[in-house]
């Protein structure tokens, strides 16, 4: 665990400059979600959720994480189950929409499909959120991640079916909406407050229109 108390952005710069090759190891407190997940995978593979099997799974999980240590994933320490459920349902709907969209493009447009590479600066500081936004946007309509600038949390996306500037701006706004949903669900307290206060003027604007 890093001894220095750095903000996420400083932490990234620190990581980037660190050439010592020393890996920070995750503590048990940081790693318990991973351990739970490994036990779940073990039990699911055996299709046996009895106490004995779970215990054996836990021993194997501990063995695996000690043998193959990973750098710590920094969690925000906040989770809102309601927003998570909402996010998941919305996500499933978007996956269906994405599939239909790509299917239509594949059959109707084919070679004449136009796309764009767009830069989307995200507001978050957290690696976890940037990673999750990247995953979600790859699975839902239109886009996948070409490149990531970690120091400024900027995602470079390949966005399919774009033919004018309005569509580009719409796409960018869509990605920032995904980020908003994710921060509402699993972002840190500070980011959650920031996003919430950001939404209020936006709603007012819509009402004016």
């Amino acid at each position: 665990m890093p001894t220095k108390d750095l903000s996420p952005r400083d932490q990234r710069i620190d990581d980037a400059l660190d050439t010592s090759g020393v890996r920070h190891r995750a503590t048990l407190k940081q790693e318990w979600p991973l351990l739970l997940l490994l036990v779940f995978v073990w039990a699911a593979m055996w299709q046996d959720f009895s106490a004995g099997n779970l215990l054996f799974g836990a021993i194997i999980a501990l063995f695996v994480v000690t043998l193959f240590p990973l750098p710590p994933v920094v969690l925000s320490g906040r989770i809102n189950i309601w927003y998570c459920i909402k996010l998941f349902i919305w996500f499933l709907g978007q996956v269906i929409a994405a599939s239909v969209h790509v299917a239509w493009l594949a059959i109707a447009r084919g070679k004449n499909t136009h796309s764009a590479v767009i830069a989307v600066p995200l507001r978050t500081n957290s690696d976890l959120i940037v990673m999750t936004v990247g995953h979600v946007l790859t699975l839902i309509p239109g886009s996948f991640v070409l490149d990531v600038d970690r120091s400024s949390s900027t995602l470079y996306l390949h966005y399919i079916d774009i033919e004018n500037v309005q569509q580009m701006e719409k796409a960018r706004e869509g990605i920032r909406q995904i980020e908003r949903r994710l921060i509402m669900a699993i972002g840190s307290h500070d980011e959650y407050e920031a996003i919430k206060s950001e939404c209020l003027p936006l709603k007012g604007k819509k009402a004016v229109k």
């Binding site: 996956v95 994405a98 599939s99 969209h101 790509v102 299917a103 493009l105 594949a106 059959i107 447009r109 084919g110 070679k111 004449n112 499909t113 796309s115 790859t138 699975l139 839902i140 309509p141 239109g142 996948f144 070409l146 390949h158 399919i160």
Partner: peptide
């Protein structure tokens, strides 16, 4: 049917 590698990746990941 898609023209290049990048658009093909969409077909490969989404449906």
């Amino acid at each position: 049917t898609f023209p290049d590698l990048l658009t093909r990746m969409h077909a490969a990941t989404k449906p």
